[in-house]
Amino acid sequence: MSNLSENRINLVLTPADVATIKQNIDAIVALMPENTTLTDTQRASYMAINVNNKVYAENVLTEARSTGAGILAPYVNLDFLENDLTVFKQLDEIESKVNNLLQRVKDAKRIAGHEAYGMANKAYKNYQDASDAGVANAKSSYDKLKVRFDSNGNSGRIPAADLQ
């Protein structure tokens, strides 16, 4: 953190806002189709659909709707194919929006963490300097806090990379 006066996120979400966000996420989860959770084995074995496979499935549906009578076996259910393609497109759009939201959450979390860690290091450096200068009460606080850096073999010193 090169500029201590820069604090991009200087707020705390209210408990009401956190509750609302969680409720809205729960509401979205409740709207998702049932029976859509996979095991790791299923995730590995289910075929993914890419742009080319989606276009192919759409072409098959179009062709089958226009010329499939007498060609397709009775167990080929075109309504199922159409529903699957429709929900795939809907979920693809939702996934894009959720990914954008998730990236914003991750970015905000990274900014807040960066600022908190940077400010904590600046404060710690003050305790370190005050302890070195013999300021009363500074050594006991410094000794408590330096454990974080002692475990990394830094003798209580903040690594240079963490001072930025």
Rank of each mutant, 00 (worst) to 15 (best):
M32R: 09
N52D: 11
S96F: 07
Y75A: 11
Q103I: 06
D92V: 00
D150G: 05
A16D: 13
T20L: 15
Q90C: 02
I71P: 02
N154C: 07
L102F: 05
L81T: 00
L101W: 13
E63H: 14
A138E: 04
V76S: 00
K22P: 07
F149M: 05
N7G: 09
A16Q: 12
A161M: 15
K122L: 09
R157G: 09
E6A: 13
N83C: 00
I9A: 00
I71Q: 02
K109W: 12
K54G: 06
A48D: 13
R110H: 03
A120G: 06
R65G: 01
A133N: 05
V60T: 12
D143M: 05
Q23H: 05
L85P: 02
A133T: 02
N24D: 11
Q90G: 03
N7H: 13
S5E: 13
D40A: 14
T14C: 04
D143V: 06
A73Y: 13
Y75K: 08
A44H: 00
L102N: 09
Q164S: 14
D92C: 01
L4S: 13
V12Q: 09
A57H: 00
A64W: 14
R8Y: 12
N53W: 03
N52C: 06
G113F: 05
L61K: 13
Q42C: 03
P74A: 15
I71S: 03
P33N: 05
V147H: 11
D40S: 14
A57D: 01
V29Y: 10
N50K: 04
Y46F: 14
K106I: 10
T41R: 10
I49P: 06
L101Y: 12
K146Q: 07
I25G: 04
V87K: 01
P33Y: 01
K89L: 01
V12F: 03
S155E: 05
A16L: 14
P74W: 11
R110E: 03
I28M: 02
F149K: 04
N53L: 08
K22T: 08
F88T: 09
G156D: 01
Y124C: 04
T39H: 03
R8K: 15
Q164G: 14
A44T: 00
E82C: 02
T20I: 13
R148M: 15
P33F: 02
V60M: 11
Y75L: 11
N154F: 09
L78V: 01
H114R: 15
D26L: 14
A57C: 01
N50V: 03
A16C: 12
I94S: 14
D92S: 08
T67F: 11
R8I: 10
I94K: 12
D26N: 15
V87Q: 02
N121F: 11
D40Q: 13
V60H: 13
A138T: 04
S131G: 12
A130Q: 08
N24T: 09
A16G: 13
L78Y: 01
D150R: 07
I111A: 05
D107R: 10
E58N: 12
N59H: 00
Y75E: 08
N7L: 10
G68E: 06
K89Y: 00
D132S: 04
A30N: 06
Y75V: 11
N24P: 06
G153N: 03
M1I: 03
S5C: 09
A44I: 00
F88Q: 11
S45R: 15
I49Y: 03
T39W: 01
A16Y: 12
A73H: 15
D107C: 10
P15Y: 04
Q103E: 06
Q42Y: 04
P159F: 07
K144H: 08
S140H: 07
D162T: 09
